[in-house]
């Protein structure tokens, strides 16, 4: 379903066919014993549940105690019509697309500076730091940052008030999408900067020297050297971003809500929708609807990834 998710892998060197050496025959016997445990777990915990989810999405099922009844596409119809799903879908797209554009623009901007910066390695390590923090902890921390309570303001409003500007209700339903978008960009930029910088570091320095001789500006160097030569990695990073942004859950759940139960609908993501309809709900669970939303998630991942790879396709470059 998620075709072309991974970059084309470099092929193992073609082995000479024909008579196979004795030790190779012995080796090939290892294939299944070695692969089977991993493959069995993969099939049992990922492939079959995905299929089950797809099947369950066509049923009405309130969870334990209830039996699934086949209802065709009713679940989907109801879900698409519901405001909570629409908000979740739009928010998720905002995080994927706007957050993605923002993160990559930020990452690109950083590559133009970090390439020849003194102490660049240390800066990269500091930028990467939010990526090792549990999203749930990040969400709580950002909750403190964005807290609005006159007299007990969070860090952001504390600064705004000290600068003589008014405090902002960042976490009000109408603002929370943008506060979360900003937070995601902050938290994940370091990871994508690191990936891109690893690619930039592999560009031979003499290409930048030649563009210095040509008199290229930093923008021209980015446009004519950095971007084309990191294009493949940018593509892979884009895929990773899409995958990670679509399943975003804990950060938003904790940041926008009270923590133990779901935040206001305006802040929902698809991940929160699935959780709310199955495990997080205070009312009767709707496993069928949750499964339908989970199917939408994986469909969205597939579509966006295929689209991205199609858009980014180009001839391989060797250097």
């Amino acid at each position: 379903m998620v075709a072309q998710l991974t970059p084309p892998l470099t092929r193992a060197p073609a082995r000479v066919s024909g008579t196979t050496a004795e030790h190779l025959v012995g080796k090939k016997r290892l294939f299944w014993p070695f692969l089977l445990p991993a493959l069995a777990l993969y099939v049992a915990f990922l492939v079959l549940p995905t299929v089950a989810t797809a099947v369950l999405s066509f049923t009405h099922w309130a969870g334990a105690g209830d039996t699934p009844t086949f209802t065709g596409i009713d679940q989907y119809a109801q879900m698409f019509a519901s405001e909570s799903f629409q908000d979740s879908f739009v928010n998720t797209l905002v995080y994927v697309v706007i957050g993605g554009i923002g993160t990559f623009v930020l990452a690109f901007l950083f590559t133009t500076v970090l390439r020849d910066m003194r102490g660049g390695k240390l800066v990269r390590a500091i930028l990467f730091f939010p990526n090792i923090v549990a999203p749930v902890a990040l969400g709580m921390f950002l909750g403190f940052v964005f807290k609005f309570q006159p007299g007990k303001q969070g860090m952001a409003n504390f600064l705004l008030e000290h600068l003589g500007l008014g405090a902002v209700k960042f976490l009000q339903p109408e603002n929370v999408t943008w506060a979360v978008t900003g937070s995601i960009m902050w938290a994940s930029a370091g990871f994508y900067i690191t990936i891109l910088m690893a690619a930039v570091d592999r560009i031979p320095p003499y290409l930048y020297e030649d563009s210095d001789l040509a008199g290229a500006s930093p923008w021209q160097k980015f446009r004519h050297v950095t971007l084309p030569l990191t294009w493949d990695v940018v593509g892979v990073a884009g895929v990773l971003w899409t995958i990670n942004a679509i399943k975003i859950f804990e950060l938003v759940f904790v940041l926008a809500g009270p923590g133990t139960y779901s935040p206001p609908i305006r802040a929902w993501t698809l991940g929160i929708y699935v959780f709310d309809r199955s495990f997080g709900t205070q009312g009767t669970p709707e496993y069928g609807t949750a499964c339908a939303c989970a199917v939408v998630m994986i469909a969205l991942v597939s579509v966006l990834v295929v689209l991205l790879r199609r858009l980014m396709r180009r001839d391989a470059i060797q250097f």
Partner: peptide
Amino acid sequence: RLGVRGANGLTNVIAIGMGVPFQTVVIPLF
């Protein structure tokens, strides 16, 4: 490293698993 035909395809199949959101499998698993 075993030179088995189709191994690359199988690797890709397993790698695709990285793209499956946990939410997709969590209900049947539970």
